[in-house]
Design a protein around this nucleic acid. Structure first.
Lengths: 242, 242
DNA sequence: ACAAAAGTGTTTTTTATACACCCATGC
DNA sequence: GCATGGGTGTATAAAAAACACTTTTGT
């Protein structure tokens, strides 16, 4: 080792970097928020449920790694991953030993929302993979419970000011579908349906398709479509959807 | 190299991890938002202005690294650092070569607000260090301009729903001080002073100290103090300060 | 006295909330 | 025809926005 490198780099830690994906969906039949979980195939935490995650390879960007691990698990179009938070591996990963000069682990978490029916789980015969309702989570590997909790918080926040709801709903939906989704994620105590309707329709980014659907008894509902163009003015505005 | 390790770890990238601090303050005399910048003492970008940053050492947490580099630059009490975003070094840092198997660089950025007068810059005789107005930034090393922009956005957002303003104002301040701060950061087009007053006072977390201060001509202003206790109910509520 | 800054009050408009009621359909 | 869910309207309360006006100081 050259002397100069000792001066330049005093005890720098060496890291491996992982990505953890928090992928949400909504079961609109049973009105439950779902999270994508997989069973770990490797030590540590072999056989435990965990968020879909992987370590970043040489020449691979963080996002590329996040996309790669996800592509192995589900097939879905236009998946938009958003960075959540970076968790310090110090003392967190059992592979980390704070007292050693060994490699440390850092994980960057990503967040996405997908349509339940469009997301085809890839059952490769070996790997366990499942949508878990957020209310009935198993014990998770590493600090994945914490990460998931953080992601769930973000989901609820985003629902209030950004049009993420339309990433979960089908292209065409009824106003009740939209309302139910909000109730499911944000809980009861949500605004009155009638007022929700009026407010959203006044905003003008829900296009009336003219088509009506009948779901069992009751008056048929109008199908709407989200108009991203018309939403633009509200982009940087707080709390479009209360 | 053992065969098993080849299977377990296919081409994992090796990282060094850096932290970049985006430290804001407000010059309440000239009504300008300031950012703490330093001159780099090492290659690459030797001699360039940059955010205060460092590489994480063995056994040191990310936050600890962020605190360390900051403690070398300014002296301030109760600095609360908040994580901003993690930037992928791939192709960003000139030390990175995407085609090589060399070490990659990842940087996690942190964000804070400090009181201008309380933050004593540490002039160690060598290192350049300065508060730069956000409107007159020099060219910055690495992608620090981008990081700074991201941080500035966060600052403006936080001002709207969280009581960060009181981290910049002195313990006791007039309502006009508070109003001016909002105008400085959020720009003109901000709410009417009179309405701002009424709204904030009604919220009840500004304690009237009874003390009055006279600043030149005009009626003396009441000094207020922020009551964190009384703010608690608004903690998870959007847009307390419009 | 008067300008300057602080602070109060009033009026108008907009938005939120609650809830009553009508409409179209399946059974 | 009546239960069921869709959709409209109204009445009240609260909040936001605009702005006129009063109060207290320095000079």
């Amino acid at each position: 080792m050259k002397k100069s490198s000792l001066i330049d780099t005093p005890n720098l830690a060496n890291f491996k970097v992982g990505v953890d994906n928090v992928i949400f969906s909504v079961d609109r039949i049973q009105n439950r928020v779902l999270v994508l979980l997989v069973i770990r195939q490797n030590a540590p935490f072999l056989g435990w449920w965990s968020l879909p995650s992987t370590l970043v390879r040489t020449g691979e960007s963080l996002e590329a790694a996040a996309d790669r691990i996800l592509a192995e698990k589900i097939r879905v179009e236009n998946l938009y991953l958003e960075q959540l938070y970076t968790f310090d591996g110090l003392g967190r990963d059992p592979r980390d030993d704070p007292n050693s000069f060994a490699t440390r682990y850092l994980t960057v978490s990503y967040f996405a929302l997908v349509r339940f029916d469009e997301a085809a789980l890839i059952a490769d015969g070996v790997s366990g993979i499942a949508w878990y309702p957020i209310e009935q989570l198993p014990n998770l590997a590493f600090d994945h419970s914490e990460i998931l909790k953080y992601g769930y918080q973000r989901l609820r926040n985003k629902l209030e000011y950004s049009p993420v709801a339309f990433e979960v709903l089908p292209q065409e939906f009824t106003l009740n579908d939209l309302y139910q989704l909000y109730v499911t994620v944000l809980g009861e105590s949500f605004s009155d349906y009638s007022n929700f309707r009026t407010r959203l329709l006044k905003l003008g980014f829900l296009l009336d398709t003219g088509v009506k659907v009948s779901r069992g008894a009751g008056r048929p509902a109008t199908l709407y479509r989200f108009d991203a163009q018309a939403f633009a003015p509200y982009k940087d505005q707080p709390f479009v959807f209360v």
